[in-house]
Amino acid sequence: MVWDRLFAEEPLDETKLRIELSRLLLQVNTTPDMSLKNKTVEEIYKYVQELRKQVPVNPHNFNYIINPRNVCDGIDVFIISYIHSAPTHYKRRTAIRETWGDPRNFDSFVFRLVFLIGKSTDKNVQEALLMESDRYGDVVQEDFTDSYRNLTYKGIMGLKWVTRYCRHAAFILKTDDDIFVNIFNVASHLQGLQKREGQVSNLLLCLVWYRMKVVRDPKSKWYLSRSEFRDDYFPTYCSGSAFMMSTDVAAEMYRVSAETAFFWVDDFYITGLLAKKVGVKHVKFNSVYALGPSTFLDKFTEESKWRTLTFGHVHNLNHMSRVWKKVLADRRPLLHAGSNKHNNESSMARYFH
């Protein structure tokens, strides 16, 4: 019902106003003003008008199916990583757990990760996810349908989970499940930031896209019609393959997502629209990315350059394991050369500073 039009044509109906008031109070999750009992119908109407402005345009009203809420409890987490995955991508998750995502590899910082997954319509897949969660304790699942057009829900899900269950972490790393991460390089760079700046806040560090062209080819899965997005180029945003944030940024992004209309291109929605609303600037980290899956192994084994690379797009999971073994082998001399953590961090930091 369009109340403003109604009220222009007929007197205010207090009964209808109080019904709408009750609904709005639930939508905005606020406590009613007890003095409303003594207000005039005109004053109630003004209050209803104010509440209408607070109704979320993009409420994330999904429920957890699986939620390992204790992942970060009782520990001083340096990096929490949330990884976009799909219900059937068990092999990819296993490859990450056995390589760069294994927290046991790191003794100079605390690292934790979770995999973000939507709902599967296949009963057998869902049962397998429950078993996987029981075994590893790192699967977060909400009850929206897991699909390409719902990736923005998954992005908001990550912001929400970190805000609620790991807000004390120093930094957040978001990746997809087909991305390799030299997590030692990530930690070294972030530790360097802390040493220079103290407590780091308002950070969004990524492969920055400038004037990315909007795809107008209807055959492409990235196709956008002009009715969906008018301009031919996106404003500045990050590649969604991998990006890093300070935890305060994620909390603010989650807050403003409720008042930011849904847009299905998740990379742009999270690191473009939400980033702009919270006022965070994109910090360029482009030189450490190698996102061509066909060239991943070549680039991460090229002796003159591979140590400077941090993120790679992986097509063959065996290549992920092979490169991770190379990373670990490369670090062993550093670990034996100096017994203290400062020496190890300094050795890695030379690739960034």
Rank of each mutant, 00 (worst) to 15 (best):
T94I: 14
I270Y: 01
I83S: 08
T163V: 02
I96G: 06
T301M: 06
D13K: 14
Y237R: 01
L21E: 11
F311D: 01
G272E: 05
V314T: 04
L116S: 08
S346R: 15
Q191S: 09
R93P: 01
G158A: 09
Y64R: 07
H336W: 10
Y45F: 14
K174F: 02
M131N: 12
T145L: 13
F144M: 02
L273E: 11
G240V: 08
G292N: 15
F263P: 09
T163S: 15
L273F: 03
Y148M: 10
R5S: 12
S287L: 13
W209A: 02
R350H: 10
N316A: 03
G155T: 05
Y210P: 00
V139M: 12
H319Q: 13
S346E: 15
K284A: 14
I96F: 07
T271H: 03
A349N: 10
S201H: 13
V278P: 11
G137S: 05
W161P: 12
K46H: 11
V265T: 06
R104Y: 07
E127G: 01
F106M: 02
V140H: 02
V140D: 04
F111M: 06
A258I: 00
V327R: 03
Y233E: 12
N185I: 01
L24E: 02
Q194P: 06
F109L: 04
M212F: 11
D13R: 14
S201C: 00
S246W: 07
L317K: 05
D76H: 06
S85F: 02
L17H: 09
E9N: 13
F262C: 01
N124Y: 09
E9V: 05
G279P: 15
F62R: 09
V314R: 00
W222T: 12
S346C: 08
N340K: 06
D33A: 09
S85D: 03
F311T: 05
Y254W: 14
L116Y: 10
Y153L: 14
L21Q: 11
G240K: 05
D232I: 04
G240Y: 08
F171A: 01
F263D: 03
Y45R: 13
H336E: 14
H353I: 12
T15Y: 14
A86V: 15
L203T: 10
K221A: 05
D298W: 09
K123N: 09
N343W: 14
T260C: 04
F109A: 07
D143T: 04
T88R: 12
W209L: 13
M244I: 15
R332C: 01
Y45N: 15
M253E: 09
N344A: 14
R5Q: 13
P32A: 08
N29G: 10
A349C: 06
R52F: 00
F7C: 10
T30W: 05
D102M: 03
N316P: 02
L159W: 07
L309N: 07
I96M: 11
Q191A: 08
D217Q: 07
V110W: 01
P218M: 03
K213F: 02
V110P: 05
R164N: 13
V265N: 11
F62E: 11
F311R: 01
Q191D: 08
I270V: 15
V323L: 03
R97H: 07
R164H: 10
S225A: 10
L36E: 12
S188K: 04
H353V: 14
S294Q: 10
L207P: 00
E43V: 08
E127W: 00
P103I: 10
F285C: 02
A86Q: 11
